[in-house]
Design a protein around this nucleic acid. Structure first.
Lengths: 185, 185
DNA sequence: GTCTATATGTTGATAGAC
DNA sequence: GTCTATCAACATATAGAC
């Protein structure tokens, strides 16, 4: 049974979790090594630099988001797809209140530098905005662009405010409001 | 003329700028010392730790925000006060697109730890939410609480999205929409 | 109050045995 | 491929002369 080592995956998984919970700069390679059970020196066999590991985390997050979108797209009704997105956000309210939105907080933190890695993170937001806008367009909304921005800012605003106030109710409240809004369209 | 040294103020000013532009963790005491023209070792005469300096920055930011609120409150019409807030946000759109919202991005970054300093930053968001909600209440809105959350999430969502996309138009678009909304109330 | 020199600790990354 | 030992750089913070 030539079973392949899963160390690379474990490293990404640990980094994904720790970057979200503690932030990129406050998570050391040693922290990730310990959490994943991979010895420190061995990390560099899989990832040449810490930024490379971060890039892999962002890629994995992109894959997760796109997989969600694929599932929602099994429903032909674009309105229902958006409601699914809001449902998911609501289900993550505790996590968001405690650590912030995984995508938004990472973008904010990495965007402070001007590295290629921050552009990669920003690409996630760009992709998300385009997907949302496309759903509004499919709903026949003439102002789909504006509505896309409106929904995106509401989603990411929730992350910041709920996290600052440490209150999942903020997410709950906003998702309920947005569902009513989308439902009426 | 026993003119008092302004080094303390210069340190806070530099830290305020650099924390916003580069983030708290990527700004070293040496960076702040250089930018303010104060020698490295002398910084510690004014601030015992880096966190103490950050606390002073947050205090100064709180003072700025409260001073704005005081000015807006010279207008007895709460609706006009909210429109003034939206005007200010719009006027900062370039800065927000480049470095993010000064308050929001700082809260996100500091909230990853659980230090007293993060609570101080979060207090800013809390104060802002209460002020906004109070204006809705004064306007006679029965759902003032919900509206306050709605406006706050929109404002802070703008910061994240405009920064990620590096596009001041996001702020412009959202502020225009919010002005129409508030105007109709 | 001011400033130079430096202690002390942590981090990202590498060397090299196995 | 794996892992220990360690380097080199940089950060916060302090000591102590002036």
């Amino acid at each position: 049974m030539g079973r392949v080592s899963d160390k690379r995956e474990r490293l990404i998984e640990s980094a994904c979790k720790l970057f979200h919970e503690a932030g990129f700069k406050d998570t050391s390679i040693a922290d990730i090594a310990e959490d994943s059970g991979v010895p420190l020196g061995n990390v560099y066999y899989y990832f040449k630099t810490k930024d490379d590991l971060a890039a892999a985390v962002i890629d994995q997050r992109a894959e997760t988001i796109k997989e969600c979108a694929r599932q929602w797209e099994e429903n032909p009704d674009p309105k229902a797809r958006l409601l699914s997105l809001l449902d998911m956000q609501e289900s993550m309210k505790e996590q968001i209140a405690q650590y912030g939105c995984p995508v938004g907080s990472m973008c904010q933190e990495l965007d402070k530098d001007r590295q290629p890695i921050s552009e990669k993170a920003d690409g996630l937001v760009n992709w998300q905005l385009k997907w949302i806008t496309e759903q509004f367009r499919l709903m026949g909304q003439a102002e789909a662009d504006k509505m896309g921005v409106q929904l995106m800012t509401a989603l990411h605003g929730c992350g910041v405010v709920a996290n600052a106030l440490n209150d999942p109710k903020i997410v709950e409240l906003e998702m309920a409001r947005l569902k009513v809004w989308i439902g009426k369209l």
